[in-house]
Simulated scan of single mutants.
Amino acid sequence: MRDAYTTKADPQFASLQTKIDALQKTYMAQQMATDKNRKFFPDANSTLRVTYGKVKGSTPRDAVSYNYQTHLAGVMEKYVPGDYEFDVPKKLIDLYDKKDFGNYKDKTGDVPVGFTATNHTTGGNSGSPALDANGNLVGLNFDRQWEGTMSDINYDPRFSRNIMVDTKYILFIIDKFADSKWLIDEMKVVK
């Protein structure tokens, strides 16, 4: 299979990718020449990415409002046994039912799972760290809000939001769900 890929598929792919890259440069140059007042964001693949923003929810359209924070209760609300997207392991359900959250719960008494912010992200940003003003890891980027997926072309501050998994949830999963507290012991966890 590897030989077939390297001899047949990869050379075709490389040839097409070279053409696509050249056309993309022409396309971008024409956009920049046409719309001189617009801000254009570069392709960040294979580069260090730095963005900044504020934790914030959004109201993308009439009568629709998204809070900035989700919790483990929301995971349980979406639970569908056997569904490839919304199944939840029994151990996680048991931890939730017992409210065995350790010190990973927030002021609501629940474990924060994800949050949104105004950071500009693009394809390939998944896994990028989210740091607070003091340089502490507070989350990892993994997605964009549906209404803001066009932000590569047009970043709209009203509803372009990136979505991050909360560090408290990561630590909760490592400690309580995976029983790997020894990993937590190797970290400097800021409370």
Rank of each mutant, 00 (worst) to 15 (best):
Y68F: 12
Y68N: 06
Q69N: 10
T70S: 15
T70P: 00
H71I: 02
L72F: 06
A73D: 10
V75M: 02
M76Q: 04
E77I: 04
K78Q: 14
V80G: 01
V80A: 13
V80N: 05
P81Q: 09
P81E: 09
P81F: 05
E85F: 15
D87Q: 07
D87H: 05
K90H: 10
L92P: 02
I93D: 04
D94W: 06
D94F: 06
L95F: 02
D100Y: 00
F101C: 04
G102T: 03
N103K: 03
Y104P: 00
K105N: 07
K107V: 03
D110A: 08
P112L: 01
V113P: 00
F115K: 03
F115N: 02
A117W: 07
N119H: 13
T122P: 02
G123P: 09
G124S: 10
N125L: 12
G127K: 14
G127V: 14
P129W: 08
P129D: 13
A130D: 13
L131C: 06
D132C: 08
D132A: 08
A133P: 01
N134Y: 15
N134M: 11
G135N: 08
G135Y: 13
N136K: 12
V138T: 13
F142Q: 06
F142Y: 15
F142D: 06
D143K: 07
R144I: 15
R144G: 13
R144A: 12
E147G: 05
G148K: 12
T149N: 13
T149S: 07
T149Y: 13
M150V: 14
M150P: 00
M150N: 12
D152T: 10
D152Y: 12
D152I: 05
N154A: 14
N154M: 10
D156L: 09
D156G: 03
D156R: 11
P157W: 00
F159Y: 15
S160I: 05
R161W: 08
R161P: 03
R161V: 06
M164G: 02
D166A: 10
T167P: 05
I170G: 01
I174R: 03
I174C: 08
